[in-house]
Structure formats: C-alpha cells, structure tokens
C-alpha cells in the first residue's frame, strides 16, 4: 500500500561539477531587510485594489444604513424608545457590517496565488498581514465610524454622544478587524468559509461590543467615558500585539489546504 520512490534516476550527464565551475555562479543574496518597502508596497497595493472596486468599499456602508433602517420599522418609530436602544443598535449593526467584508480580506489573494507569494516573501508575514488588516480597517471600520453619527440622528441618539460614538467605533473596529482577520485567515482555504467565519469571530467580538456600546451609553448618561475608551484602547493594543502572529500562523495553515 505504500507507494515508494522508484529511485532518483540520473539522466543526461553526471553531476556537472565542472560545468558549475566554468560559469560564474548566480550570486547568492543576503537578506537585506527592506521591510518598510514591502509593507508600504502592500498597503499601496491593497488600497489601489479596493479603491478600484468601490462597490466592495460601499457595500458595508449601505448594509449598515439598511440594517439601521430595519429597526424602527420592526420595533417602533417612537424616538424615545429608539434613543434608549440606539447605542446598542448602532454598535451591533456596525459590527455586522465590518464582519461582512472580512471574508474577502484574504480570499482573492488565496484564489489568484498571490497569498503563497506573500508567504514566501523574505519578510515577517505578521508585518505584511498587519498591512492588509490596516487597509481593511481604513476602508471599512473608519468609514463606518464616520457614518455612524448620521444614522445616530435617525435613531434619535441623544446629543452629546455623537463624538463618543464615532470615536468608540473607530477604536473598536480596529480591534474587530484584527481579531476578525484571524478568523478570515483560518477559513480562507475553505470553500464555504463565510458562515463559519461569523461563528468563529462573533464570540470573540463580545468584549469590544460591551465596551464600545458601553462608552456611548455612558456618554448619554453623562458619566465619564474615559474608562470605556481606555479599555477599548487596551483591547486594541493587545490585539495589535497578538493578532498578527495568530494571523500569520493561520495563513500558513490555510495555504496547506
């Protein structure tokens, strides 16, 4: 049952040592860093790609607005009721919108073979994947955070909490992108990774959701928001330190199929 090797056969000449000595060998290169060049080029490349397909950038934003529209229709148009649940609604809808675009983070690279090239670059994979995640946040999380106050108006979000809403979303979605990228990296090799991806990352999103929505609520009640924002910042710092390694390890697993 074991198929074994039928001996490495040598056709043509014997070991061509004299040939190798005649010609000047292709010089072996020393690895000469250039990490910043590689990271910058990856940032530029992903930004260019996404900006050329604007639909992919706009989809999460439209989804966000659409989901927010569903709630008054499903629950009640009463501004007082909406004001109470607005922080939670805005945060949950933004979180789902950010999740929506996550599946495509590594998928096209996987399909066209550039992911394996990324893995074979003589650069730390964690740094290169961090560049990709940064682009995801820049074109998903940040626009969502900027758009949220407008939807806040529509949900009668009390005044004084708008800046905190945008800030908490900007901070929080950065963590979401980092954590979500681990899930995206784990499922990129799977044919139907999308649904599984949500199952993997949503439980991990809960702390960010608690402190993000909590910050907005605290702002509404006039309590200090600095504690919430500080914890969101701490979560982001922890994700920044740990997630890139997990993403890199997951990509190496996924490339094996």
């Amino acid at each position: 049952m074991h198929s074994s090797l039928h001996g490495a056969s040598n056709s043509g000449s014997s070991q061509s040592s004299e040939t190798a000595q005649q010609v000047s060998a292709v010089p072996l290169r020393e690895h000469n860093g250039g990490l910043m060049t590689a990271v910058k080029a990856t940032l530029v490349r992903d930004l260019t790609l996404l900006l050329r397909r604007r639909g992919e950038v706009l989809n999460p934003l439209v989804f966000f607005a659409l989901v927010i529209t569903l709630f008054p229709i499903a629950i009640s148009p009463d501004p007082e009721l909406l004001a109470v649940i607005a922080p939670g609604l805005l945060w949950v809808a933004a979180l789902l919108a950010a999740l929506l675009s996550l599946d495509s983070l590594f998928r096209s690279d996987y399909d066209d073979g550039s992911l394996e090239q990324l893995l074979l670059a003589p650069q730390p994979l964690a740094a290169l994947s961090l560049a990709k995640v940064a682009v995801h946040w820049l074109l998903t999380g940040l626009p969502l955070a900027l758009m949220a106050p407008i939807l806040g108006i529509m949900l009668a979000l009390p005044a004084g909490s708008y800046a905190v809403l945008a800030l908490s979303l900007a901070l929080g979605t950065a963590s979401l992108s980092l954590i979500g990228a681990i899930g995206a990296a784990l499922t990129v090799g799977l044919a139907r990774g999308g649904v599984l991806l949500s199952l993997l990352v949503l439980p991990l999103y809960i702390p960010v959701l608690i402190f993000g929505a909590g910050a907005v609520q605290a702002a509404i009640f006039g309590e200090g928001v600095s504690a919430h924002l500080a914890i969101l910042g701490a979560l982001l710092a922890a994700s920044l330190m740990l997630a890139p390694w997990a993403i890199a390890a997951s990509l190496r697993i996924s490339i094996n199929g």
């Binding site: 290169r29 020393e30 490349r45 260019t48 790609l49």
Partner: peptide, 19 residues
C-alpha cells in the same frame, strides 16, 4: 537566507487582475 534566494511560481500565477 533561503527565501531571499528563492523564486517560486506556483499553479496560480499570483497576478492581481485589478492591477
């Protein structure tokens, strides 16, 4: 050092269609 001297081309060409 190995990766700095390797050029690998796989089944898929690794070319981004958007670029």
């Amino acid at each position: 050092h190995f990766l700095a001297n390797l050029l690998y081309l796989g089944h898929a060409p690794g070319i981004k269609s958007g670029l």
